[in-house]
């Protein structure tokens, strides 16, 4: 190897380059749409009949038990388990590591099947006065209490794109959608926010979207 060749430096790139948009005018408060990065996402599938063994391990080591389908179990603000379907959930954590599967396997051993999903999703967070109204136009789920609570999670579709939606507060939602269609998803949410803005003008949509 030629030692004079400079080593290439690799930088990770988020699906939308860390986009953050603030939608505001004098007739409404700010509505903020931003990409969330720096999350490790691991899919956890349970072998048939192995739920309680896995749940006990996770509760002892991470402080969260396996959630039922449609529910989120959280440990503080760093770890969340999203119950997405029978025998499958997502671990979402802000404590990033180079190999999230390897780290989780130290806890779960052979009680679960794991796959790293960290780079497979674009994660958007929408917050502010118009977030609920913007989402109800594109999301077929009833997002109001008590149908959808702060411990609810749902996998659904918005504008034909697969989406996982989680409620962080009454006016703050987190949306996960496949990375490969990240720009289309951003477009769908952006258009919907613009459509519920008071005094909306079609010229408000940036041309590059």
């Amino acid at each position: 190897m030629d030692n004079s060749t400079p080593q290439a430096e690799l930088h990770s790139v988020s699906p939308l380059g860390g986009v953050e948009q603030v939608f505001s005018n004098e007739r409404s408060g700010d509505t903020v749409l931003k990409e969330i990065n720096a999350l490790d996402i691991v899919s956890i599938a349970t072998p048939r009949g192995g739920q309680s063994a896995l749940s006990n391990l996770l509760e002892q080591q991470l402080g969260v038990a396996l959630p039922p389908v449609g529910q989120v179990n959280r440990a503080g603000s760093t770890v969340a388990l999203l119950g997405l379907q029978s025998d499958q959930c997502f671990l979402v954590t802000t404590e990033q590591t180079r190999n999230p599967v390897q780290r989780l396997k130290l806890i779960t051993g052979d009680t679960a099947y794991l796959s790293d999903q960290s780079d497979s999703w674009v994660v958007l967070e929408i917050s502010g006065d118009l977030s609920h109204r913007a989402l109800e136009r594109i999301c077929p789920i009833d997002l109001s209490e008590p149908a959808f609570t702060l411990t609810s999670v749902a996998r659904t579709s918005m504008e034909h794109l697969s989406v996982i939606i989680e409620k962080l507060s009454e006016s703050r939602f987190r949306l996960y959608s496949p990375r490969s269609s990240a720009n289309s998803f951003l477009h769908a949410v952006t258009v919907s926010i613009n459509n519920v803005m008071p005094n909306f003008l079609s010229s408000d949509i940036p041309e590059e979207l």
């Binding site: 039922p68 389908v69 449609g70 029978s86 077929p140 789920i141 009833d142 149908a147 659904t156 579709s157």
Partner: peptide, 11 residues
Amino acid sequence: PLLGPRDAAEF
């Protein structure tokens, strides 16, 4: 049975 009412478009 697990998730409650859902739009038929999801199916």
